[in-house]
Design a protein around this nucleic acid. Sequence first.
DNA 1: CGTCTATTTGAATGTACTCAAAAGCGGTGG
DNA 2: CCACCGCTTTTGAGTACATTCAAATAGACG
Lengths: 200, 200
Amino acid sequence: MFELIDANIAKHITLSPQELDHFHSFLHVKKYKKKQFILQAGETSHFQGFITKGCIKNYILDEKGHEFIMYFALEDWWVGDIMSFYERKPGNLFIETIEDTELLTIDHQSNEQLLHDIPQFERFFRILIQRSAYTLQQRFFNTLSKPAEARYLEFVKKYPQVVQRVPQQLIASYIGVTPEFLSKVRAKLAKKSSKTEAGS
Amino acid sequence: MFELIDANIAKHITLSPQELDHFHSFLHVKKYKKKQFILQAGETSHFQGFITKGCIKNYILDEKGHEFIMYFALEDWWVGDIMSFYERKPGNLFIETIEDTELLTIDHQSNEQLLHDIPQFERFFRILIQRSAYTLQQRFFNTLSKPAEARYLEFVKKYPQVVQRVPQQLIASYIGVTPEFLSKVRAKLAKKSSKTEAGS
DNA sequence: CGTCTATTTGAATGTACTCAAAAGCGGTGG
DNA sequence: CCACCGCTTTTGAGTACATTCAAATAGACG
């Protein structure tokens, strides 16, 4: 039950068996069916989640109702609206399942208690946020500096499991183009690679 | 000397006078002339800085040598390449002064000591990173969902001091357009507002 | 005042978008 | 088991926002 999350935490901090047990005592299991909301914009996020099974998308909606996907998350990822969770006010993120999904969650009060009882978690979550901020920065840079084709190829290389599991239109949203345009990019790539392979 | 940084920290955590003194003992003053590098891509960042005077730009260079500005920082802002600093490996960020600048800095070893001696700082830096991650996320969303004109107007509204102090081409880089195009955007805005004012 | 840099202007071009329609694909019920 | 329905992906034509390159103008500083 806790193998995955324990291994995840062990990547950055080292806890005693007692501390681990204490940590586990704060966690709850939450289950969602496909296409359910875990969080909606306007709500205050009452928990952070760790995915033990399934797949979700985290996105913002603009005025016209277009989805802008901030990230996908599969097993072994943490999900949540960090600002809403820590500042205890309504956020602007949607979190929605793409498949049936199971989370381990920790609510706000438990989290405060955890940070107090095991200060190492303060460090753990700092590292988590730091890395996600870095990833976002790189992605922002890529989006401004590289054409859609390069961004798509990098996405496929970096997240092959996601490509298998989520519809193409969501990947279009992630890399920052319309579904129609991604389709055209892929058509061009297919033509290119068929040319290359035609060297018989 | 430490008034500004103490007030900055007091926004998020509360320290005793002794703890503050202890914190101050870790700090050093660094001074830079205009257009000097504080950090270059490929270097490992050995310190985090807090600006007491001046103005800097933090940017990434693409293969063609185009600058992509991640953020500007003035007095009362923290600057650094967080990933490089904490992971102790070469980063890809440039930090360069736009004006003569003075920093209070804390080096890596002192930082570790500080986090150990006053664990509240672990929380402080987590909050800092959290907020910058949030800001970056909003900006990324804006860049994908809104036209350049709207992004420019929001920038002017949000950072009026920066508009006064940095050349326009750098603002173009920040909002994600070429200097030429920002110039055209401004020309159109000027025409619009002159029309509005012509209702005499 | 002259030089160097920043900004503006213009023409041609390109990357990606919008809208509309067709084709593909998967699940479900008759 | 096949036919149909809904949803996703593809294709195409026209358009828009922003880029590139080149040149002119304006500003800042010694």
